Computed example of a mutant assay.
Amino acid sequence: MTEMTHPALPVLEEAIRQATGSDFRPSLCAAAGGGCISETFTIGDGRQRYFVKLGTAADASLFSAEAEGLGAIAASGSFRTPAVIAQGSDAQHAFLVLEHLELRALASAAEGAAFAEHLVQLHRTLGEHFGWRHDNFIGRSPQRNGEGDNWSAFFVDRRLRPQFEMAKAKGFGGELQRQGERLLARVPALFLDYRPQPSLLHGDLWHGNAAVTAAGEPTVFDPAVHYGDREADLAMSELFGGFPSAFYAAYRSAWPLNEDYEQRKLLYSLYHILNHLNLFGRSYLREALRLSTRLNEELSLRRD
């Protein structure tokens, strides 16, 4: 990594000193990869190293939600998560300082199976209602929450509808919106014989947010936590490259999925594709339209 200096270092230094009660004085500041939403780097003093996320002052609520999500997952006793060291903001910057972990991607069948066991444990952490006590974020997009007892209504009103509305505001109208209007009315048909429990979800579980530590501990980060259908995490895990096949086999062995999962998987995938459309632009439009159209076609066959 390339050493660097940064104008926010004095603020970070003071925050870490106060949070840890130490005399931390950084001698290393090095850029880190993986920061498509915020600036990321590590800082250290030769004894301790920390992973830092830095954004504008407007990002304070985003970092607060991330810290809360990491805490919720850690409290479940399921995954290893980086500990939150400090968070805060000044007139220019918002920041989140995390424990620095040496991480690597899941590689072996054994690591995939172990990750599945920890995910089952996370999903067996149940809430009283679907949702979360307040809104948070999916990537940089706002994620509406609140709490409710009807999962299909929650997913329509708090997940899909806001994404379709954002897409329309960004100029993605036409056939996507026509398919979206049809789909929003039909979603309850996917839940006539399926009643999910309100499981604690990571919420943004693609392979880039999963790893193992140097000691082999399954680890997750960058969550968008809420209580919802565990199938939603499984569906997200299959997007953008997926996990080792042993992960899926081990999860299904520990907690089998409902026979209609493959169809609902399309619904849950659509949420994330729409979000990518809204965050990153037109390259995701074709897939968003394909998923919306396919779901409508399959739900039309159900009615017939």
Score class of each variant (00 low, 15 high):
Leu291Val: 09
His6Met: 00
Asn145Gly: 11
Glu39Val: 02
Ala110Ile: 04
His276Pro: 06
Arg49Leu: 04
Leu289Arg: 10
Ala235Met: 09
Leu54Tyr: 02
Tyr251Lys: 06
Ser245Pro: 06
Gly173Ser: 03
Ala153His: 15
Ala67Phe: 05
Arg140His: 10
Gly112Met: 05
Leu274Gln: 10
Arg47Cys: 11
Tyr284Glu: 08
Glu231Leu: 09
Glu111Asn: 03
Ser300Lys: 14
Arg25Val: 01
Gly44Thr: 11
Lys168Gln: 04
Ala254Ser: 10
Gln143Ser: 13
Arg282Met: 08
Thr2Tyr: 01
Arg178Gln: 06
Glu287Tyr: 14
Ala250Pro: 03
Tyr251Ala: 05
Leu299Tyr: 13
Tyr251Phe: 09
Arg294Ser: 05
Gly148Arg: 12
Lys53Met: 02
Ala116Asp: 01
Ser253Trp: 09
Glu102Ile: 12
His202Thr: 10
Gly71Met: 14
Asn296Phe: 11
Glu111Pro: 02
Arg49Ile: 03
Arg144Glu: 15
Gly148Asp: 06
Leu301Glu: 12
Ser64Arg: 05
Phe79Leu: 07
Ala105Arg: 08
Leu192Thr: 13
Ala254Phe: 10
Ile85Val: 15
Leu190Phe: 05
Val120His: 05
Leu122Gln: 04
Ala15Pro: 00
Pro244Met: 04
Glu259Phe: 10
Leu101Pro: 01
Phe172Gln: 00
Tyr271Asp: 04
His202Pro: 12
Ala116Cys: 07
Tyr261His: 14
Pro223Trp: 11
Leu96Gly: 02
Arg178Phe: 04
Ala31Leu: 13
Pro196Ala: 13
Ala72Pro: 13
Asn296Tyr: 06
Tyr251Met: 09
Phe79Glu: 08
Tyr194Glu: 14
Asp260Thr: 15
Leu122Pro: 02
Ala107Arg: 11
Lys168Arg: 03
Asn145Ala: 15
Ala75Arg: 14
Arg17His: 01
Gly88Ser: 00
Ser61Pro: 07
Leu270Ala: 14
Pro218His: 05
Ala91Thr: 00
Asn136Val: 14
Val187Lys: 02
His93Gly: 00
Arg302Phe: 06
Ser61Gln: 11
Gly55Trp: 00
Arg290Val: 13
